[in-house]
């Protein structure tokens, strides 16, 4: 099948790749850009393990074709930590609060939470649960993922205390 040249800007760096039109963004990131931090859990848009930010929006990389991301800016889990590997506040909160076990779904949750915390306005308990219910985790029962994102939101001044749901 013929290939189309595209340009992806991933975590600020340009990647010139040629892909079949049917190639998903997730496969292009993993196989053409070598960024295997974006994981594929279902390839039909339910689990959210492949969540990345496309021009600032959280999307399922398995439901986008790579060609749709041509000339657009993508952020993946590899772009969260500092270049020397220092974890950012969200990643640190996951670490300190045991927000991951096997770690397979973690990149998707990190990108989903990154998106949520970058939206205007504070996050409260209802919003937190609503947004994080976009993705699936099989190990944590969500308890410590919620705790971790709550802690990060507090640290970043994005948390709005509400009465417990």
């Amino acid at each position: 099948m013929s290939k189309t040249p595209i340009r992806l800007t991933v975590n600020g760096l340009p990647h010139e790749v040629a892909v079949e039109p049917r190639r998903t963004l997730a496969d292009a990131l993993r196989d053409d850009c070598g960024l295997t931090g974006t994981h594929l859990g279902c390839e039909h848009g339910v689990c959210g393990a492949c969540t990345v930010l496309l021009d600032g929006e959280a999307v399922r990389a398995c439901l986008h074709f790579a060609v749709q991301a041509d000339s657009r800016a993508i952020r993946t889990v590899e772009g969260l930590a500092a270049p020397d590997g220092t974890l950012n506040p969200l990643q640190r909160a996951f670490w300190e609060n045991h927000g991951l076990q096997c770690g397979f779904c973690t990149p998707g949750f990190l990108m989903l939470a990154t998106w949520m915390l970058e939206q205007p306005g504070p996050v409260d308990e209802a919003r937190l649960r609503h947004v994080l219910s976009s993705n699936l985790c099989r190990c944590t029962g969500y308890q410590n993922i919620l705790t971790a994102v709550r802690a990060a939101a507090q640290e970043l001044g994005k948390w709005a205390e509400t009465a417990p749901a």
Binding site: R30, L35, T36, G37, T38, H39, L40, T76, V77, E78, L80, A81, G85, L87, Q91, F94, W95, E96, H98, L100, G103, F104, T106, P107, L110
Partner: peptide
């Protein structure tokens, strides 16, 4: 906190498909 976590949090884990 677990020693396993930092690599997984940076997307630097090595699962079979990776």
């Amino acid at each position: 906190p677990r020693t396993e976590d930092p690599a997984l949090l940076r997307g630097e884990g090595a699962f079979t498909a990776d």
